[in-house]
Write a protein that binds this DNA or RNA. Structure first.
Lengths: 191, 191
DNA sequence: AATATAACAAACAAAAAGTTGCATAATTAT
DNA sequence: ATAATTATGCAACTTTTTGTTTGTTATATT
C-alpha cells in the first residue's frame, strides 16, 4: 500500500518487467516463460531481476496486484449509488471499460494460457465491491443475497470474458444493453 | 480418443500418478510440485514418469481430460430434453453432482491454487453441451442466444464454485432451488 | 559535487529437468 | 506353461534453470 522508494531507476525497470511479461504472454503460457527470457527481452541483467522479485511468480503477482488496484479504483467511482440495479449497471460499465483498456493483458492471459488467471483477477475485486454495496437486500427474498450476487457476478464476468475472446463481435454498448435486459430491475424479485 | 494400449501396468501407474497429483495438490500449488515429488509419493521411478508424460503439465492435462470426459459423459444423459429451462435444470443437477463427487480435486485446484483451473475445466464442457442443445432459440429474442447462454452458464458455474468453496453452507438441493428461482422459465423473455 | 544505490557483469552452487543403457519383473501372446 | 514382449527399476549422466555473490560502473538523490 505505501510505496516508499521512488528511485526512477526502480520504477523504470519494474514497469519494463511488467511490459515484457505481458508481451511474452502473447507468445507462450506463463509456465514456459523463463526468468532469462524476461531479462533478455527486457534488456536487463538477471541479477537485477532477482533484486526486485524472488521469482517470476512474484513478478506476476505484483503485476496482477497493479491490475486489481486499477480496477478497484475505477469501481470506487461508483460509491454513491443506492439503487441495486443502477449500481450493477454502473459496475458493468466500469468493468467493461477496464477489460477493454487492458485488452492486451486479459486476452493473452485468457486465450494463450490454459489456466486462465483472468477470472480470478477480476472476480476478487468485483466481488469485494459488490459485497460492500449490496447489504440492504439481506433477507428480503427467499434466496440468500450472497447467492444472488454470485449468480449475477458470474454471469456478467462470463459475458465480459466472452466478449473479450470474440474480439469485436459486439460493441461495448451492445453488451451493456444485453446485460441490462438480462439483469432484472428488482434483483430480489419473487418469481 | 482411441486407447490402444491396455497393459495393466500402464493403466496402474497412470492411475497412481493421477491419484498422487490430486493428493499433492491438497498440500501445495501445482507450480511447487516437482516431478520428483510425484514419483516419491507414488513410489515409481522418475524415468518411468517420463516414459508416460514429458512433464508435469502433460500429466495435469491428461488428468483434466479425464475429468472433462467424465463430466461430458454425465451431461450426455441429458440428451432428450427439448424445453430449455428443463434442460438447464437437468444440466445443473448433473454439474453439481459432478463437482460434489470430485470435491477433493476441484477444491484443491480452487482453494490452494491462485490460478484456478477449475473454471476452465468446467466451462469448456458445459459450454459445448449447452451450445449443442440451445439452437432453437436463435433470433427469437432481441439478445443473441450465445450471450444468453454465456450469461447463465457463468452464473451457474460461479454459484457452483462458491458452493464448493464455502463447504456445506448450503445443501445441494438448496443450491438447485435457488438456481431454479434465478433462471427464468422463458429464457428468451422480453422485459 | 558528494553520497547513495541501482544496474551490470561474470562466475558460482544447487536444484530440477530430461536422457540413456541395461537388468529385472510383470504382462501378453503362443 | 513357456516364450516373447514390454513396462518398470536402477544408476549414471547432461542440460537447463534457478538463485546467490562479489566487485565494478552508471545513475539518481541530496
Amino acid at each position: 500500500m505505501n510505496e516508499k522508494k521512488l528511485d526512477l531507476r526502480v520504477i523504470k525497470t519494474q514497469n519494463l518487467l511488467y511490459q515484457t511479461l505481458v508481451e511474452l504472454l502473447k507468445d507462450k503460457p506463463f509456465e514456459e516463460i523463463k526468468v532469462q527470457d524476461i531479462c533478455n527481452t527486457a534488456l536487463i541483467n538477471r541479477s537485477t531481476f532477482y533484486a526486485h522479485y524472488s521469482d517470476k511468480y512474484e513478478l506476476l503477482a505484483a503485476y496482477i496486484n497493479n491490475l486489481k488496484n486499477a480496477l478497484k479504483k475505477e469501481l470506487e467511482k461508483n460509491n454513491n449509488i443506492s439503487n441495486t440495479k443502477e449500481y450493477y449497471m454502473e459496475m458493468i460499465k466500469l468493468f467493461l471499460n477496464h477489460i477493454d483498456d487492458k485488452r492486451d493483458v486479459y486476452q493473452s492471459a485468457l486465450v494463450n494460457n490454459q489456466n486462465s488467471i483472468s477470472m480470478d483477477i477480476l472476480y476478487d475485486v468485483i466481488n469485494n465491491d459488490v459485497t460492500r454495496h449490496i447489504q440492504e437486500d439481506v433477507n428480503q427474498a427467499d434466496i440468500p443475497s450472497t447467492v444472488i450476487s454470485r449468480f449475477y457476478i458470474g454471469a456478467v464476468l462470463n459475458v465480459g470474458i466472452e466478449w473479450l475472446k470474440s474480439n469485436n463481435k459486439y460493441t461495448k454498448d451492445e453488451v451493456i444493453h444485453y446485460l441490462d435486459l438480462l439483469i432484472p430491475d428488482d434483483l430480489n424479485r419473487k418469481k
